[in-house]
Amino acid sequence: MKHLARGVFWVAAMMVAGAGVVEAQQKTLDTVKARGQLVCGVNVGLAGFSAADDKGVWSGLDVAYCKAIAAAVLGDAGKVRYVATTTKERFTALQSRELDVLARNTTWTLQRDSQQGLAFVGVNYYDGQGFIVKKSAGVKTGKELSGATVCVQTGTTTELNLADFFRSNNLQYKTLVFDKADEALKAYQADRCDSYTTDASGLYSVRLQMAKPDEHMVLPDVISKEPLGPVVRQDDFQWFTIVKWVHFALINAEEAGVTQANVDQMLTSTVPDIKRLLGKEGDFGKGIGLDNEWAYRMIKQVGNYAEVFERNVGAGSRIKIDRGLNKLWSKGGIQYAPPIR
């Protein structure tokens, strides 16, 4: 005993002071270049948007935006440090300059855009509340859900949107309300309700967690607005512009038909839009503080918006989200980018 008690008593406090002293406030672009690495805040784990695989490699729609920014700014899509952030700490991490950019399925709202020192650069995924139903029910659109029982999680805007949707369409419905999303989903699987509703991006991965995914389908209707996009700080306009145009260039590339595979041939294209995009004409890259090959590198290493979408959440992935609103404006969606000129 004596020895043991003494052993315990010889304890010395151990404190690790991993404090890092970082640069005084300066341009984010310069900081990123000096560091040689982009620090990107992503979701801890959201299928299709940001998740690391069993080798620790990050992928997803939001992650692809981190890669695109790194490719444009640093020339290498691999020079990203991913910081997993939770819903509550994400804005603090950005405001306290721990992050350069936050690409974390964050909904763009007026309050966030104005009061929290945040600046949304655009919408990389138009999300909204949707419905999942059993295929056997034969329902094809939300309007046919009249008289249906819907399982929903309580205390969320989901419940309110649902009420608005049915009321404004003069439809009869019943809700089955649950405290947790898991329980609502269980009830739907146990046939206690005809449909389960939550954000559409989530519905597709929910489908894969059912015993027979093929017997369920997500309806095309989206009944609320949840525009998700990357966020930067308000105090650095140059950086805001760069991230904004990274997003626009991805969409413009899709519109111009420039893909990861054909971008090298496209360098010799005579189409003015493509020449301007790939830096063969004008000094557009210099205008935002980069070089003129910024968009070329980005497309070469990451792909255009369509490729990024299909690979991570669309047809090329397991969750297979329908592009819906996220189609280009010219193809029936609302993804639209100002021209590079």
Binding site: V44, G45, L46, A47, G48, A51, A52, D53, D54, V83, A84, T85, T86, E89, S205, L208, Q209, M210, A211, S317, R318, I319
Partner: peptide, 21 residues
């Protein structure tokens, strides 16, 4: 946002490759 054992398991659950009931 620190991935301890449980956090890591939860993160793994959101990787789409292994989504299943």
């Amino acid at each position: 946002g620190i991935f301890d054992l449980l956090g890591m398991v939860q993160a793994a659950l959101s990787a789409q490759r292994w989504l299943s009931p």
